[in-house]
Simulated assay, not measured.
Amino acid sequence: MVEFYQSYRRTILLVDDTPANLAVLNALLKDQYKLRIATHGRLALELAEREPIPDLILLDVMMPEMDGVEVCRRLKANPITADIPVIFLTAKTQESDELIGFEAGAVDYIHKPLLPMIVQTRIRTHLQVQDLKTALKMHNQTLEERVAQRTAELLKMQDATIMAMGVMAELRDEETGLHLKRTQEYLRLLANTIAQHPRFSHELSAENIEWMAKSAPLHDIGKVGIPDAILHKPGKLSDEEFTIMKNHPTYGRNIILEVERVLGEDSKFLLYAREIAYGHQEKWDGSGYPQGLKGDEIPISARLMALADVYDALLSRRVYKPPFSHQMSVDIIKQGRNSHFDPDLVDAFLQVADQFEQIAIEYADPLDEVISDMQFAQNH
Rank of each mutant, 00 (worst) to 15 (best):
M1K: 08
Q6K: 15
T11S: 15
L14G: 01
L14T: 05
D17H: 09
D17E: 05
A20F: 11
A44T: 03
A44G: 08
L45G: 07
L58A: 05
M63H: 07
P64Q: 07
E65A: 11
E65H: 07
D67G: 08
E70Y: 01
L75F: 06
F88D: 01
T90W: 08
K92N: 06
Q94E: 12
G101Y: 02
Q130L: 04
L132W: 01
L136Q: 05
Q149P: 00
L155F: 12
Q158L: 08
A169I: 01
R172G: 10
E175D: 10
R188W: 03
T193N: 06
H197R: 07
F200P: 03
S201D: 11
A206G: 03
W211I: 00
A213H: 07
L218H: 01
D220W: 00
S238M: 10
E240Y: 12
L263G: 01
K268F: 11
A273H: 09
Y278M: 10
H280P: 07
D285M: 09
G288E: 03
G292S: 09
G295R: 11
A302H: 09
R303C: 08
M305I: 01
M305D: 08
V310E: 15
D312T: 07
L315D: 02
F324A: 10
I332G: 03
Q335S: 12
F341K: 08
D344H: 12
F349P: 11
Q351S: 09
A360K: 05
P366L: 15
E369Y: 03
E369W: 05
S372G: 08
Q378D: 12
